[in-house]
């Protein structure tokens, strides 16, 4: 019988040691790869769930406000428009003058002044005459028109039955937002403070626009 080089005491341990070593190496490899993959899968899962929840929230908010938001946006846009509101403010103040039975004797629109927070300001000056009560009524209603006219200096003088008010009011405009938030960004519904502001500006007298429809060309009469 050929004698083995490995002593029998060690020979008996080779197989179990080999098995344990192979399992340890395999385990280490699987652990390293597996842990990384599991955490990656978990992250992906969490991100997917978050995106889904953000989208579901967005759909819910949009469906909730869809009935009213367009009208409210028009009202808010009229309060602070995106173009110079000088002429519109003047028109509104002239209409207010007519409503309060005072006569506009002078008016002027200043140049654009850069204000804070992306706003630009335009000063409109108007001078009205009438009875004292009517002039006071006109002055006290200046802040009830859209675009919002913020009164600056007001001076009322009276001589006999005739009173005269000189008012400088600022109206503001700002460019419209140019992009929508990305789909993964959450969108919130209106807060109660924002709803208060909307209900306040809904009471403002909106400018009346007349939409002219295109007319077909009339046949020319023969001049000969």
């Amino acid at each position: 019988m050929k004698k083995s080089l490995i002593p029998p005491n060690f020979q008996v341990l080779i197989t179990p040691f080999g098995l344990i070593s192979a399992m340890a190496i395999l385990g280490a490899v699987v652990y390293n790869v597996g842990v990384a993959r599991i955490s990656q899968q978990n992250l992906q899962m969490a991100q997917t769930k978050k995106n889904e929840s953000v989208l579901a929230e967005r759909v819910s908010v949009l469906q909730e406000v869809s009935g009213t938001v367009t009208t409210q946006a028009k009202v808010a846009d009229a309060a602070v428009p995106n173009i110079n509101p000088g002429l519109l403010t003047l028109s509104q103040l002239r209409l207010l003058a007519s409503k309060t039975s005072v006569t506009v004797v002078d008016f002027g629109i200043g140049s654009e002044i850069r204000d804070v927070g992306g706003l630009t300001r335009v000063e409109t000056t108007i001078v009205v005459e009438g009875s004292f009560a009517n002039v006071v009524s006109f002055v006290s209603q200046i802040n009830t028109v859209a675009p919002i006219a913020v009164p600056g200096k007001i001076r009322i003088t009276s001589a006999g039955a005739l009173s005269r008010a000189s008012v400088t009011a600022s109206s503001y405009f700002a460019p419209l937002p140019t992009k929508l938030p990305s789909l993964t960004e959450p969108i919130t519904k209106l807060t109660s403070a924002e709803a208060d502001v909307i209900s306040k500006i809904s009471l403002l007298t909106q400018p009346a626009f007349l939409e002219l429809t295109a007319q077909p060309a009339a046949p020319r009469s023969n001049p000969f």
Binding site: V65, A73, L176, L190
Partner: peptide, 10 residues
């Protein structure tokens, strides 16, 4: 809604 929120801020 985005326009409304922007204008309300202004």
């Amino acid at each position: 809604l985005i326009l409304l929120k922007d204008r309300v801020g202004k």
